Computed example of a mutant assay.
Amino acid sequence: MRDEGRPRLDGWPLRAALAALSVAALVLAIGLAVSTGEMRIPLAAALGAICDRIFGTAFAPSRIQAGIVWDYRLSRALVAACCGATLALCGAILQALLRNPLAEPYVLGISAGASTGAVAVLIVGFGGDVLTLSGGAFLGAVAAVALVALLAAGAGGGTDRVILAGVAGSQLFNAVTSYIVTTSASAEQARGVMFWLLGSLGGVRWPDVYLAAPVALAGFAVAAFHARALDAFAFGSDAAAALGVPVGRVRAVLFGLTAAMAATMVSMVGSIGFVGLVVPHAARFLVGPGHARLLPASLVMGAIFMVLADVVSRILVPQQVLPIGVVTALVGAPAFAAILYRSRRLA
C-alpha cells in the first residue's frame, strides 16, 4: 500500500509542530489548574499574578488572588506535571525492559515499597534525623525491586513471573504499611497518612517543585540516552546483547532510575497508580514504539494527564477535594482491563 500522501512522524516539520502543540497543551492545562478551585480566578488574572512575580510587571490582581495563584495553585500544578511525567516515563521504561504491556511502578510494587519506606520514616522515625522522607521512600523502592527480582528468579524468571512477583510484593508492602499505621500512628496521623497514600497534592509547595523538576528532567535525560538500548530490548535481552547492548549494566541503571524517580514522587504525593500504565500506551498509539519519540511523548502526556486529573479531583465533588489516586484509578482501571483483554486476544 502506498502512503506517499500520509504524514510521517519522523519528518522534522511535523515533529516540531507536534512538540509545539504538546507544550501549548501543557501550558493550557496548567493555566486551567491555576484558575480552577473553590475561588474561581479568571485566567487573565492568574497569568497577571505569575507575570508580576516573575517579571516584575504591574498587572496587579488582588493580593488574595496573587497569593492563591503563586503560593498554592501554581506550585501544585507544577508538581502534578512533574509527577505525571515521571510516572509515565517509568512505565515506558519498565514496559520496554520487561517486554510486558502491564509493567509500571504501581503494578511492580515499587510504589508500594516507596510508601512503606516513607511511612516508616514519617511515623516510626526510621533512620533517626539522618534519613529524609525521600531517602526512606528510595530505600523502600529499592527493597521492592530486590524482592520482586528474587521472587521472579525463584519462580523461574520470565516477564510474566515478574508481574506476578510484583503483585505479591505490592500486597506485602501494603500490608507492612497498614501494620505500621495501625500500630504506631495516632488517630490524626492515621487519617493523614491514609489520605496521603491515596495520592494528595494538598501539601506540596515550591520546595517540592525544586526537587520534582530536576528529578523529572534528569530522569528523562538518562532514559533518552538509553533510547536505542530500549528499542533493542523489544527483541529480547539476547537480541539486545547481540546488538552490542551491555544488558546487565543498562538494566541496573534503568531499574535504579525508575526506583529513584518513583520513590521521589511517592515521598511527595503518595502512591498514585495507573499513570505509568495508561499514558505510555496512549503515547505509543500516537507516535509509535520508537523510544526516541515515545519517551518525550510519554513525558508530556503524563504531565498533562496528571494536571487535568488534579483539576478533576478539585471540582468533581463540590466543597471537597478527592485524593488524586481516586481520579487516576477511575480512568486507569478501565484502561487496564482493556489492555488485559487486548493482550489476551493477541496471545
Results as ranks from 00 to 15, higher is better:
83 C>I: 11
29 A>D: 06
115 S>E: 00
252 A>R: 15
335 A>R: 04
207 P>G: 01
100 N>A: 00
281 H>Q: 06
315 I>T: 14
225 F>L: 15
94 L>E: 08
51 C>A: 14
149 A>W: 14
57 T>E: 13
107 V>T: 07
243 L>Y: 09
10 D>A: 13
175 A>G: 15
228 R>A: 10
84 G>M: 06
105 P>E: 01
291 H>A: 00
327 V>I: 13
301 M>T: 09
284 R>Y: 10
209 V>P: 12
179 Y>A: 05
266 V>A: 00
35 S>P: 01
142 V>A: 01
151 L>S: 00
166 G>M: 08
193 V>E: 03
287 V>W: 13
268 M>C: 11
308 L>K: 07
138 F>N: 02
191 R>M: 11
89 L>I: 04
258 T>D: 08
185 A>S: 02
75 S>I: 07
143 A>W: 09
23 V>A: 11
343 S>K: 14
217 L>N: 09
325 G>L: 06
76 R>C: 09
198 L>T: 01
339 I>R: 08
170 S>G: 14
71 D>F: 14
150 L>M: 13
209 V>S: 04
104 E>R: 07
326 V>W: 10
43 L>A: 12
108 L>H: 03
116 T>M: 14
11 G>C: 06
12 W>S: 09
60 A>K: 15
158 G>F: 08
173 F>V: 03
15 R>K: 12
338 A>E: 01
246 P>W: 10
8 R>V: 02
213 A>P: 06
335 A>N: 06
17 A>F: 15
314 R>C: 09
